[in-house]
């Protein structure tokens, strides 16, 4: 099976989610081949799981004040802060038939690609079900998957150098919890690449690229005109709309 790999690029939150959705549709229609993409978010953004409440999870006022976008994902899971300078996101979009039917097993397969990339940086990470990758018991990557009409979408974040303080100013945590003590306790549960390896973001990307493409037939490519056109529609009509983002 030949894969299309779309190299690290930067988009706004709505466009990033719209692109994943549009590629899913094209893979389902048989017009696009299985795709791996890497991306960043500009401006920084919070994405919430498809079943989460925006009002409960996100400090929308603080986001508006500090130019942080907020968007509801297609996938379940929890709220993620996508720091423009501190994380890399990936998406894998492919026919379900390429992966184990068991959802946890399929998480394990794709997470092994992340783990393989981190290993190149000398970081020994492991998959912890349901959907986390940890280093020394601390979370370094969160992942979320959906399956629709025979197509699997899994996206995930790899924390490179996320600003934890900023993270908790935009996620809804009561003010008193954003104390040094709380941040220390979060840091005990969350980690990032720079804590383990003296590397630049590009090094992290290239390591992930190797991890994801290992033993695969692939070509570098870009989105088709149809994907981009559909993504533009979805960005406008769905992902940037309050009717979607505040639907729970």
């Amino acid at each position: 099976m030949k894969w299309r790999v779309i190299e690290l690029e930067t988009r706004n939150a709505y466009s990033n989610m719209a692109i994943d959705n549009a590629v899913m549709e094209e893979v389902r229609a048989g017009k696009s081949i299985p795709t791996i993409r890497f991306y960043k978010w500009l401006p920084s953004a919070v994405s919430i799981g498809t079943f989460q409440s925006m009002a409960n999870e996100v400090n929308v006022e603080e986001c508006n004040r500090s130019n942080v976008s907020y968007v509801r994902r297609l996938t379940g899971g929890g709220a993620v802060y996508h720091d423009s300078n501190g994380e890399i996101t990936y998406s894998v979009i492919a026919p379900e038939s390429l992966f184990p039917k068991n959802i946890i097993e399929s998480y394990k397969v794709i997470c092994s690609w992340v783990i393989s990339g981190l290993a190149i940086l000398g970081i020994k990470a492991e998959f912890v079900p349901i959907n986390d990758i940890v280093v020394n018991g601390k979370k370094i990557s969160g992942n979320a998957q959906t399956r629709r009409d025979g197509v699997l979408l899994q996206h995930g974040t790899i924390l490179y150098n996320t600003d934890i303080k900023k993270m908790f100013s935009v996620l809804k945590v009561s003010k008193e919890k954003i104390s040094d003590k709380f941040i220390e306790s979060v840091e005990q549960r969350v980690t990032k690449v720079v804590d383990y390896a003296d590397v630049k973001q590009d090094d992290v990307y290239f390591a992930l690229l190797k991890g994801f493409t290992k033993d695969k037939e692939f070509e570098f490519g870009y989105f088709s005109a149809d994907e981009l056109k559909r993504a533009e529609e979805l960005e406008k009509e769905v992902y940037s709309a309050d009717s979607w983002n505040f639907n729970r």
Partner: peptide, 15 residues
């Protein structure tokens, strides 16, 4: 009834 959370459910429309 409105159910929210960070769980996963397939298909999502089942919620």
């Amino acid at each position: 009834a409105t159910i929210t959370g960070d769980f996963f459910m397939y298909p999502e429309s089942a919620l």
